[in-house]
Design a protein around this nucleic acid. Sequence first.
DNA 1: AGATGTACCATTCGCACACATGGTTCATAT
DNA 2: ATATGAACCATGTGTGCGAATGGTACATCT
Lengths: 126, 126
Amino acid sequence: MQIVIDIDDPVPLFAQLIDQIKQAVLGNKIKPGAALPSIRQLANDLDLNSKTVAKAYRLLERDSVIQTKGYRGTFVHPDAKANSKVDLNAWVRAKLDETITAFRQSGVTDSEIRIAFGDVMNNRND
Amino acid sequence: MQIVIDIDDPVPLFAQLIDQIKQAVLGNKIKPGAALPSIRQLANDLDLNSKTVAKAYRLLERDSVIQTKGYRGTFVHPDAKANSKVDLNAWVRAKLDETITAFRQSGVTDSEIRIAFGDVMNNRND
DNA sequence: AGATGTACCATTCGCACACATGGTTCATAT
DNA sequence: ATATGAACCATGTGTGCGAATGGTACATCT
Protein backbone atom coordinates (compact mmCIF):
# COMPACT_ATOMS: atom_id res chain seq x y z
CA MET A 1 0.00 0.00 0.00
CA GLN A 2 1.38 3.34 -1.07
CA ILE A 3 0.51 6.33 1.05
CA VAL A 4 1.89 9.76 0.45
CA ILE A 5 1.34 12.59 2.90
CA ASP A 6 1.83 16.13 1.71
CA ILE A 7 2.57 18.42 4.62
CA ASP A 8 1.88 21.50 2.48
CA ASP A 9 -1.52 20.30 1.37
CA PRO A 10 -4.28 22.39 2.93
CA VAL A 11 -6.18 19.15 3.46
CA PRO A 12 -5.62 17.99 7.06
CA LEU A 13 -3.22 15.11 7.48
CA PHE A 14 -5.79 12.77 9.03
CA ALA A 15 -8.12 13.52 6.14
CA GLN A 16 -5.43 12.71 3.60
CA LEU A 17 -4.94 9.40 5.32
CA ILE A 18 -8.64 8.61 5.27
CA ASP A 19 -8.97 9.54 1.62
CA GLN A 20 -6.04 7.46 0.51
CA ILE A 21 -7.06 4.41 2.47
CA LYS A 22 -10.56 4.59 1.05
CA GLN A 23 -9.14 5.00 -2.43
CA ALA A 24 -6.87 2.03 -1.86
CA VAL A 25 -9.90 -0.04 -0.91
CA LEU A 26 -11.93 1.10 -3.89
CA GLY A 27 -9.00 0.43 -6.21
CA ASN A 28 -8.51 -3.07 -4.82
CA LYS A 29 -5.08 -2.14 -3.60
CA ILE A 30 -6.00 -3.58 -0.23
CA LYS A 31 -8.65 -6.24 0.15
CA PRO A 32 -11.25 -6.91 2.84
CA GLY A 33 -9.85 -8.90 5.72
CA ALA A 34 -6.31 -7.78 5.12
CA ALA A 35 -4.32 -6.46 8.05
CA LEU A 36 -3.37 -2.81 8.23
CA PRO A 37 -0.23 -1.42 9.78
CA SER A 38 -0.56 -0.63 13.46
CA ILE A 39 -1.14 2.94 14.51
CA ARG A 40 2.36 3.33 15.89
CA GLN A 41 3.89 1.60 12.91
CA LEU A 42 2.12 3.77 10.34
CA ALA A 43 2.82 6.90 12.34
CA ASN A 44 6.48 6.03 12.34
CA ASP A 45 6.57 5.23 8.61
CA LEU A 46 4.78 8.40 7.57
CA ASP A 47 6.53 10.51 10.17
CA LEU A 48 3.24 11.45 11.78
CA ASN A 49 2.10 11.61 15.36
CA SER A 50 0.35 8.48 16.53
CA LYS A 51 -2.65 10.57 17.57
CA THR A 52 -3.13 11.73 14.03
CA VAL A 53 -3.15 8.20 12.70
CA ALA A 54 -5.39 7.10 15.54
CA LYS A 55 -7.85 9.80 14.61
CA ALA A 56 -7.96 8.61 11.03
CA TYR A 57 -8.42 5.01 12.12
CA ARG A 58 -11.18 5.97 14.54
CA LEU A 59 -13.15 7.69 11.80
CA LEU A 60 -12.52 4.89 9.36
CA GLU A 61 -13.89 2.43 11.86
CA ARG A 62 -16.95 4.57 12.44
CA ASP A 63 -17.58 4.40 8.71
CA SER A 64 -17.09 0.62 8.83
CA VAL A 65 -14.20 0.74 6.41
CA ILE A 66 -11.87 -0.89 8.89
CA GLN A 67 -12.19 -2.98 12.04
CA THR A 68 -9.98 -2.75 15.08
CA LYS A 69 -9.63 -5.86 17.15
CA GLY A 70 -7.82 -4.54 20.15
CA TYR A 71 -4.42 -6.04 20.69
CA ARG A 72 -4.84 -8.15 17.58
CA GLY A 73 -4.48 -5.21 15.25
CA THR A 74 -6.60 -3.52 12.62
CA PHE A 75 -8.16 -5.09 9.55
CA VAL A 76 -10.08 -4.04 6.49
CA HIS A 77 -13.82 -4.39 6.98
CA PRO A 78 -15.58 -7.14 4.96
CA ASP A 79 -17.88 -4.53 3.40
CA ALA A 80 -15.15 -1.93 3.15
CA LYS A 81 -15.57 -1.42 -0.55
CA ALA A 82 -19.24 -0.52 -0.31
CA ASN A 83 -18.73 1.54 2.82
CA SER A 84 -15.94 3.54 1.25
CA LYS A 85 -18.38 5.00 -1.20
CA VAL A 86 -20.88 6.40 1.28
CA ASP A 87 -19.90 9.89 2.32
CA LEU A 88 -21.32 10.63 5.75
CA ASN A 89 -20.35 14.28 5.56
CA ALA A 90 -22.26 14.72 2.34
CA TRP A 91 -25.48 13.64 4.00
CA VAL A 92 -24.74 15.92 6.94
CA ARG A 93 -24.24 18.92 4.68
CA ALA A 94 -27.36 18.12 2.70
CA LYS A 95 -29.48 17.82 5.82
CA LEU A 96 -28.02 21.00 7.29
CA ASP A 97 -28.52 22.86 4.05
CA GLU A 98 -32.15 21.85 4.02
CA THR A 99 -32.68 23.02 7.59
CA ILE A 100 -30.82 26.30 7.21
CA THR A 101 -32.61 27.13 3.98
CA ALA A 102 -35.91 26.77 5.83
CA PHE A 103 -34.68 29.15 8.52
CA ARG A 104 -33.61 31.78 6.03
CA GLN A 105 -36.88 31.61 4.18
CA SER A 106 -38.62 32.27 7.47
CA GLY A 107 -36.69 35.50 7.82
CA VAL A 108 -34.23 34.24 10.39
CA THR A 109 -30.93 36.08 10.25
CA ASP A 110 -27.65 34.29 9.78
CA SER A 111 -26.48 35.84 13.03
CA GLU A 112 -29.38 34.26 14.86
CA ILE A 113 -28.79 30.92 13.23
CA ARG A 114 -25.17 30.96 14.30
CA ILE A 115 -26.02 31.93 17.86
CA ALA A 116 -28.63 29.18 18.07
CA PHE A 117 -26.20 26.69 16.58
CA GLY A 118 -23.56 27.61 19.12
CA ASP A 119 -26.05 27.24 21.93
CA VAL A 120 -27.20 23.82 20.81
CA MET A 121 -23.69 22.54 20.25
CA ASN A 122 -22.75 23.57 23.76
CA ASN A 123 -25.93 22.20 25.33
CA ARG A 124 -26.99 25.68 26.33
CA ASN A 125 -30.52 25.27 25.04
CA ASP A 126 -32.38 25.21 28.30
CA MET B 1 -36.59 53.13 29.57
CA GLN B 2 -33.50 51.74 31.21
CA ILE B 3 -31.06 49.91 28.99
CA VAL B 4 -27.76 48.61 30.20
CA ILE B 5 -25.18 47.23 27.82
CA ASP B 6 -22.43 45.03 29.18
CA ILE B 7 -19.42 45.15 26.93
CA ASP B 8 -17.94 42.09 28.65
CA ASP B 9 -21.03 39.96 28.17
CA PRO B 10 -20.40 37.17 25.67
CA VAL B 11 -23.86 37.89 24.28
CA PRO B 12 -23.47 40.16 21.23
CA LEU B 13 -24.40 43.79 21.81
CA PHE B 14 -27.21 43.81 19.25
CA ALA B 15 -28.69 40.74 20.96
CA GLN B 16 -28.55 42.41 24.36
CA LEU B 17 -30.43 45.35 22.93
CA ILE B 18 -33.12 43.15 21.46
CA ASP B 19 -33.56 41.21 24.66
CA GLN B 20 -33.87 44.27 26.84
CA ILE B 21 -36.32 46.03 24.56
CA LYS B 22 -38.51 42.95 24.44
CA GLN B 23 -38.33 42.68 28.19
CA ALA B 24 -39.24 46.34 28.53
CA VAL B 25 -42.30 45.72 26.39
CA LEU B 26 -43.34 42.64 28.33
CA GLY B 27 -42.83 44.49 31.62
CA ASN B 28 -44.98 47.41 30.46
CA LYS B 29 -42.00 49.72 30.74
CA ILE B 30 -42.77 50.96 27.24
CA LYS B 31 -46.22 50.78 25.76
CA PRO B 32 -47.47 50.12 22.23
CA GLY B 33 -47.49 53.22 20.11
CA ALA B 34 -44.82 54.95 22.11
CA ALA B 35 -41.90 56.45 20.26
CA LEU B 36 -38.46 54.96 20.61
CA PRO B 37 -35.22 56.87 20.50
CA SER B 38 -33.79 57.26 17.04
CA ILE B 39 -31.00 54.97 15.97
CA ARG B 40 -28.38 57.69 16.19
CA GLN B 41 -29.74 58.95 19.49
CA LEU B 42 -29.72 55.54 21.15
CA ALA B 43 -26.32 54.75 19.72
CA ASN B 44 -25.00 57.96 21.21
CA ASP B 45 -26.60 57.35 24.60
CA LEU B 46 -25.36 53.80 24.92
CA ASP B 47 -22.04 54.59 23.35
CA LEU B 48 -22.63 52.11 20.56
CA ASN B 49 -22.13 52.31 16.85
CA SER B 50 -25.24 53.28 14.93
CA LYS B 51 -24.89 50.15 12.82
CA THR B 52 -25.22 47.99 15.88
CA VAL B 53 -28.41 49.70 16.97
CA ALA B 54 -29.72 49.62 13.42
CA LYS B 55 -29.19 45.87 13.35
CA ALA B 56 -31.20 45.42 16.52
CA TYR B 57 -34.00 47.65 15.25
CA ARG B 58 -34.12 45.78 11.95
CA LEU B 59 -34.61 42.48 13.73
CA LEU B 60 -37.15 43.92 16.11
CA GLU B 61 -39.14 45.18 13.20
CA ARG B 62 -38.99 41.81 11.52
CA ASP B 63 -40.53 40.35 14.66
CA SER B 64 -43.19 43.09 14.62
CA VAL B 65 -42.14 44.38 18.00
CA ILE B 66 -41.44 47.84 16.62
CA GLN B 67 -42.41 49.79 13.54
CA THR B 68 -40.17 52.15 11.67
CA LYS B 69 -41.88 54.95 9.81
CA GLY B 70 -39.01 56.36 7.85
CA TYR B 71 -38.21 59.91 8.65
CA ARG B 72 -40.97 59.98 11.28
CA GLY B 73 -39.08 57.75 13.64
CA THR B 74 -39.60 54.37 15.25
CA PHE B 75 -42.53 53.27 17.36
CA VAL B 76 -43.59 50.31 19.43
CA HIS B 77 -45.81 47.99 17.46
CA PRO B 78 -49.48 47.77 18.50
CA ASP B 79 -49.16 44.05 19.07
CA ALA B 80 -45.68 44.35 20.51
CA LYS B 81 -46.50 42.61 23.72
CA ALA B 82 -47.82 39.50 22.05
CA ASN B 83 -45.06 39.50 19.47
CA SER B 84 -42.39 39.80 22.12
CA LYS B 85 -43.44 36.47 23.50
CA VAL B 86 -43.13 34.50 20.32
CA ASP B 87 -39.53 33.50 20.27
CA LEU B 88 -38.50 32.73 16.74
CA ASN B 89 -35.18 31.60 18.05
CA ALA B 90 -36.82 28.98 20.22
CA TRP B 91 -38.18 27.18 17.20
CA VAL B 92 -34.82 27.52 15.49
CA ARG B 93 -32.99 26.01 18.43
CA ALA B 94 -35.52 23.19 18.72
CA LYS B 95 -35.19 22.32 15.06
CA LEU B 96 -31.42 22.54 15.18
CA ASP B 97 -31.29 20.44 18.32
CA GLU B 98 -33.33 17.77 16.62
CA THR B 99 -31.05 17.74 13.60
CA ILE B 100 -27.81 17.80 15.54
CA THR B 101 -28.95 15.06 17.87
CA ALA B 102 -29.57 12.86 14.84
CA PHE B 103 -26.07 13.60 13.60
CA ARG B 104 -24.45 12.73 16.89
CA GLN B 105 -26.38 9.50 17.18
CA SER B 106 -25.08 8.58 13.76
CA GLY B 107 -21.56 8.91 15.09
CA VAL B 108 -20.82 12.21 13.42
CA THR B 109 -18.16 14.17 15.27
CA ASP B 110 -18.85 17.63 16.62
CA SER B 111 -15.90 18.85 14.60
CA GLU B 112 -17.47 17.51 11.45
CA ILE B 113 -20.80 19.08 12.31
CA ARG B 114 -19.20 22.47 12.89
CA ILE B 115 -17.22 22.30 9.68
CA ALA B 116 -20.26 21.28 7.68
CA PHE B 117 -22.28 24.04 9.31
CA GLY B 118 -19.66 26.62 8.40
CA ASP B 119 -19.58 25.37 4.84
CA VAL B 120 -23.33 25.52 4.42
CA MET B 121 -23.62 28.97 5.97
CA ASN B 122 -21.05 30.28 3.55
CA ASN B 123 -22.50 28.52 0.54
CA ARG B 124 -19.42 26.38 0.20
CA ASN B 125 -21.33 23.18 -0.23
CA ASP B 126 -20.61 22.56 -3.84
C1' DA C 1 -30.97 73.16 8.02
C1' DG C 2 -31.89 69.12 10.52
C1' DA C 3 -33.68 64.72 11.39
C1' DT C 4 -35.32 60.09 10.09
C1' DG C 5 -34.08 55.02 8.39
C1' DT C 6 -31.30 52.65 5.05
C1' DA C 7 -27.49 51.12 2.12
C1' DC C 8 -23.00 50.99 0.55
C1' DC C 9 -17.77 51.37 1.16
C1' DA C 10 -14.22 49.77 4.42
C1' DT C 11 -11.13 48.02 8.66
C1' DT C 12 -9.92 46.13 13.22
C1' DC C 13 -10.25 42.99 17.06
C1' DG C 14 -10.81 38.93 19.47
C1' DC C 15 -12.01 34.47 20.02
C1' DA C 16 -13.23 29.92 19.18
C1' DC C 17 -11.64 25.97 17.29
C1' DA C 18 -9.39 22.59 14.34
C1' DC C 19 -5.03 20.55 13.72
C1' DA C 20 -1.09 18.51 15.27
C1' DT C 21 2.05 17.53 18.58
C1' DG C 22 4.11 15.15 23.07
C1' DG C 23 3.89 12.17 27.08
C1' DT C 24 1.93 8.74 30.13
C1' DT C 25 -0.94 4.94 31.43
C1' DC C 26 -3.99 1.04 30.96
C1' DA C 27 -5.86 -3.82 29.97
C1' DT C 28 -5.26 -6.96 26.77
C1' DA C 29 -2.90 -10.65 24.64
C1' DT C 30 1.21 -13.29 22.34
C1' DA D 1 9.25 -8.43 27.07
C1' DT D 2 6.59 -6.62 23.38
C1' DA D 3 2.90 -5.08 20.90
C1' DT D 4 -1.98 -3.81 20.19
C1' DG D 5 -5.77 0.12 20.48
C1' DA D 6 -7.58 3.45 23.57
C1' DA D 7 -8.01 7.16 27.03
C1' DC D 8 -6.35 10.62 29.57
C1' DC D 9 -3.18 14.64 30.63
C1' DA D 10 -1.31 18.76 28.16
C1' DT D 11 0.62 22.68 24.71
C1' DG D 12 1.31 25.44 20.56
C1' DT D 13 0.02 27.41 16.16
C1' DG D 14 -2.56 29.20 12.78
C1' DT D 15 -6.69 30.99 10.86
C1' DG D 16 -11.25 31.71 9.55
C1' DC D 17 -14.91 34.61 10.64
C1' DG D 18 -18.36 37.20 13.10
C1' DA D 19 -19.02 41.30 15.73
C1' DA D 20 -18.36 45.88 15.99
C1' DT D 21 -16.59 49.91 14.41
C1' DG D 22 -16.12 54.35 11.13
C1' DG D 23 -17.30 57.07 7.20
C1' DT D 24 -20.13 58.57 3.45
C1' DA D 25 -24.18 59.08 0.89
C1' DC D 26 -29.05 58.91 -0.30
C1' DA D 27 -34.27 60.05 -0.42
C1' DT D 28 -37.53 61.54 2.51
C1' DC D 29 -40.08 64.83 5.22
C1' DT D 30 -40.67 68.87 8.78
